[in-house]
Design a protein around this nucleic acid. Structure first.
Lengths: 340, 340
DNA sequence: TGCTGGCACTCAGCCCGTGCGAGTGCCAGG
DNA sequence: CCTGGCACTCGCACGGGCTGAGTGCCAGCA
């Protein structure tokens, strides 16, 4: 009915006003600032219903209403459209990411950009190793029985690992090993790399067997291990600006942001085909984030996602704007990574 | 005289008490908690003198005294000795850094360790490129006219740079280029690398000239450029704990910590032969740090410093403990980098 | 049936006045 | 040169009263 419809309009208006003013919003102010076509008294009735349904709440008796997590959820799902970025913002994105020199540079620019656009804490995951492919493997002898393994992926990520060899290593063997490794792994997905190690042992000439065994183990152990995916975090200073939204202290949030594992889990759960994912308040599994919202999306070239990026902020945030910014930045980053 | 001596004892006691309680300290409490051998009244006279000399101040008339920056300075210079670390702390250092896999791992463990030991924000600078030497240069062809240059230094740092070539590059030329580069640069200090480029052009066979020119320029441009030294920051959550010491807001501080340049300048000014450097409050050039202290020291293997590390916290901090922790961690890191 | 104006009620926040206590400076005496 | 005593200052915590925003409810009206 038109009845329910208007109640949703009221909810939308409450969210918008509350996000921009940070004051609990009352029926009178609502009637003044929005063309709802009804009197404050009617709005009060609607608000009573919305409160009963759990979409809004009163901080205390004689205050206005504030959206609950459930209210924000409804707003995000049904009451808002992604706010298109301004031309200036689009140009800022291009300018910011243009001229990046290497992967680290791209990602740290991305995180700064995102923090600046949204005024929130920004988080960018390094391209997941397991979804990347081997572009090149380099072996460098750094001591008589110690090798440095350097992996370069097709996303430009560079991984390194020291390997201690049981016996001294001959100079020529290193070159042979390098050739052999590249022959075997070049172009292979890292997720498939472990399966190629037996082949590697097969084709290795006898005198390299022991060496190859050790190096192969190290390769699998560190490079296929998904646990050590890295994260770039930026814009924590923006937390201070919204400190008022985190009643207790910023501490748990700051701690969670340093515990990369926690954030990583949130950010990397984005395989959902390019849609922007929003987690509001208590929807976040981790307790420290129960007063925060996370807006994230996968980025990647073409169809496959390389990793996730997003923002963390108070539940009282401008969802349409932030969702649009996150999505736009992810697209540009995917594009740039595809080029390089 | 014994006179002046006691006044210094009083100052020391004030600093110690204030650091541990965060309450302005009064004459009576001082007389009770420290064996100064005199009555509160006498201490009051000493305090009046100390205040006149600018070492302490009163937040308001009927409050106790609080050390000024100048007071902390005197305390650090003349009234304190580095507090020896406990056995547990020493073991924690070893355990924490043991088993690190690569440079990034070492540094991020270091920063976590330092943050945990001192309960402050920890900062570690990547080993300065200009003081490192080339261990290996790798050239990988990532597209027909695009090369990826990877530099591996003797400190284990890996730097990468994309180079666009004016013309398509032949596969064999890449191998030749790699050999040539390594022949020229292997073992060279990065600070000397720029000077070697002419030699490089000299010895290059004619058909490689153009390629070498482009690559040489890129090498010098990015690898010798000291500006892009990186920084690892950790323990920002500790700032929340001491938020009370930063009256306005944490924001300027958080911003400064993200502006890596600012902190980098502070941390890298540590060539002073291994001594721990303390900058207290206003002594820090940057305004955002005027309420903070920075404790830093250079780390490195042998005699040369590779970079700096340290902590940032409120001026009201436990200087002896923090100075000891910073120094101890720097030593271990230097040791570990020398080994790897 | 649904909207509206009116009205009584609630309660957080603010202003203010008061009392308390910690801490000081000064002074006279040892 | 140190000490105990004493008067003084002033931040802060406490409590009461007022205000105003905002609500819920109700009776009347389209």
């Amino acid at each position: 009915m038109a009845h329910d419809e208007r109640r949703l309009q009221v909810l939308r208006a409450i969210v918008q006003d509350y996000v921009s003013t940070n004051d609990p919003v009352g029926s009178k102010a609502l009637a003044e600032r929005h063309d709802l076509g009804v009197s404050p008294a009617t709005i009060r009735n609607d608000m009573a219903v919305l409160e009963e349904q759990g979409y809004i709440t009163q901080p205390h008796t004689s205050a206005g209403r504030v959206p609950t997590d459930k209210g924000y959820r409804l707003f995000v799902d049904r009451l808002s459209a992604l706010k298109p970025l301004s031309v200036a913002e689009k140009r800022a994105i291009e300018r910011f990411l243009d001229g990046a020199l290497d992967l680290h540079d791209i990602l740290s620019r991305t995180v700064r950009l995102l923090a600046q656009l949204t005024h929130q804490v920004a988080v960018v995951q390094y391209p997941t190793l397991s979804r990347s492919a081997v572009r090149h493997l380099e072996v460098v002898q750094v001591a008589i029985s110690r090798l440095l393994l350097v992996l370069i992926t097709d996303t430009g990520r560079v991984e390194q690992r020291l390997v201690d060899c049981p016996a001294d290593v001959d100079r020529d063997d290193v070159a042979d090993l390098r050739a052999l490794l590249n022959q075997t792994f070049a172009g292979a997905k890292l997720s498939d790399a472990a399966g190629l190690v037996p082949d590697l042992l097969e084709t290795a000439p006898p005198k390299l067997r022991r060496l190859v065994a050790g190096v192969g183990a190290a390769l699998v152990e560190t490079l296929v291990e998904p646990g050590e995916d890295r994260l770039v975090v930026g814009g924590t200073a923006n937390l201070a600006r919204v400190a008022v939204d985190f009643p207790g202290s910023l501490r748990p949030l700051l701690e969670a942001l340093e515990e990369q594992v926690v954030v990583l889990r949130l950010i990397s759960e984005v395989d959902t085909g390019g849609a922007v994912l929003v987690r509001i308040g208590e929807e976040n599994a981790h307790e420290a984030l129960s007063g925060a919202s996370v807006v994230s999306v996968g980025y990647g070239s073409g169809d496959r996602a390389l990793g996730g990026l997003g923002i963390v902020g108070p539940t009282r945030m401008d969802y349409p704007m932030n969702m649009a910014a996150v999505r736009a930045v992810a697209r540009y980053v995917g594009q740039i990574l595809a080029e390089s």
